[in-house]
């Protein structure tokens, strides 16, 4: 069984990191960096303002960047019959979705955390703010990954599913955003714990909700 899980994870990672035509993992990172680059142009070179609001901008950019790969997460496998073949081999939809959440997070979470370093420099964030942002992203992005895969499974096979998925993720990601970005304020450390808690809830639900959605989409 563990060999199968590793094979699934390797395939998902290759597909999400290098996905030839979707831009792979580079696209969310570039999107994230361009938001961080555009924001100072839009609000002007007011260093204290940038430093005060920059952390929140990074959070919004991270959330939006996580939406970009949604249409590649579940739909192609449903369309190409992969889920049917896994089901025939006794590999449950829940397991596939759980592996996919991990692969999706690996393909955008750590890259965004790395990209947050140049983004913080562009926005003039201080060291301790950057540290809080990084810890917050570590706590919050797994939840965003779980949410993304769940919504991608729910909207797979629908017309305009990709756009719908983006719209559905945004309101459901609000708790993670509030706690994550809220941790940047004074005395906001408890926000990190709450962001992590929201992540854990989403991670626990994702395999079951996503698996049920895939089975429903098959009929």
């Amino acid at each position: 069984m563990s060999g199968r899980i590793l094979a699934l994870l390797k395939r998902d990672l290759l597909r999400l990191l290098l996905g030839a035509r979707g831009g792979g993992a580079l696209l969310p990172v570039l999107f994230f960096l361009s938001v961080a680059m555009l924001y100072p142009f839009a609000v002007g070179p007011d260093a204290p303002l940038l430093a005060r609001t920059g952390g929140g901008v990074i959070w919004v950019a991270a959330l939006l960047a996580a939406i970009l790969p949604l249409d590649r997460l579940v739909e192609p496998d449903l369309e190409m019959g992969q889920f049917d073949q896994w089901a025939l081999r006794g590999i449950s939809e829940e397991l596939v979705i759980a592996v996919r959440v991990l692969a999706h997070w690996l393909s955008f979470g750590p890259p965004l955390m790395l990209a947050a370093l140049p983004a913080a420099a562009l926005l003039g964030l201080e060291g301790h703010t950057l540290l809080t942002v990084e810890i917050g992203l570590l706590a919050g992005t797994p939840g965003l990954a779980a949410l993304g895969v769940t919504v991608a499974a729910l909207t797979a096979g629908l017309r305009g599913g990709a756009a719908l998925a983006g719209l559905l993720v945004i309101p459901m990601a609000v708790p993670v955003l509030i706690f994550g970005a809220g941790s940047l304020g004074a005395g906001g450390e408890s926000g990190l714990a709450l962001a992590a808690a929201a992540s854990l809830v989403l991670l626990a639900l994702a395999p079951f909700a996503g698996g049920a959605a895939v089975r429903a989409a098959r009929n």
Binding site: G3, R4, A7, L8, R11, L14, R15, G19, A20, R21, P76, E79, M80, G81, Q82, D84, Q85, W86, R89, I91
Partner: peptide
Amino acid sequence: RPALDPARTLGEALAFWRQI
């Protein structure tokens, strides 16, 4: 539906199912 990843080579796509 062949259930083979379109972006990967035939060898890799078949190797994936051999592993599974």
